[in-house]
Amino acid sequence: MTQFLQQLINGLSLGSIFAVLALGLAMVYGTLGILNFAYGELIAITGYTMYFATQAGLSFWLSALIGAVAAAVASILMQLLVFRPLQGTGFVTLLFASFALSQVLQGIFRQAISPRAKGIPAPEVLSNVFEFGGLRISVLNVVTFVVAMVSLGLFALFMRTSRSGLQMRAAALDLTTTRLQGVSAGRVILLAFALSGILAGIAGVLWISRTGTVTPTTGATPILVAFVAVVLGGLGSTVGAVVGGFVFGILEVFLEAYLPSGVVPFQFAFALIAVAVVLFARPEGLFGKAVEVKV
């Protein structure tokens, strides 16, 4: 039982990062129908920004803040420089362009910074562990969970109560009718990319705190996780993305804990197969709606 609770806590902590990640990806998909493959590179951008900031002598916390902002700025630039010129070319072209963009960015990291991992030392307080009724809970796990939940809460609050949030919810439902109310499409789209970037930044900070390093391909795992969580939750559903993130995080931790040691390296593969089984039963995902075609 303790073992189970222990894993649940670890799973919730990891899942909360995944939830934030998936939400950011779902954000842009919901508004624009773009699956941004280069979303993972926003995590790397956060990491490199944190690396340079800490190298310049800034505190870890300040660096983290700057890192998250950098991801938001980068996300906006992606829209302006790549996606906007390709507007109207269709899902496949946009998806592939974002894939290419992710390769360009990885190339830049490799050339301009280093192909090797750069360390970002997290403050020692994060690695402290306190024991609680037989459970070992690290400060990092708690901080991760709290930061992720607060972020998700603030995001929900923003979307529910602010003018801009309302505009974005309306735009995701029906962009043309929203524009007919005087809401600028360009502004809503930029805002979607900015929010997506901030979420990537927050998830990035949490991810980097966990791994302690950043490499040119740091974004690979996060983007995969976000993809899987978004499909698992149901494409186009932000709630689904968050739930999908949590489910996938918990699944991964439990597989790691309970799989026989010989197959633990395949843990990720097992998690994906489990998701495939869910999708076989429910192809539209946990929170997705079967598409109603209008003729």
Binding site: L86, A97, R110
Partner: peptide
Amino acid sequence: ISGTVQFVLALLIILALI
């Protein structure tokens, strides 16, 4: 410089797509 190929290809692809 390692990774040049991938980098240049990726850049060419974005331009080609546009």
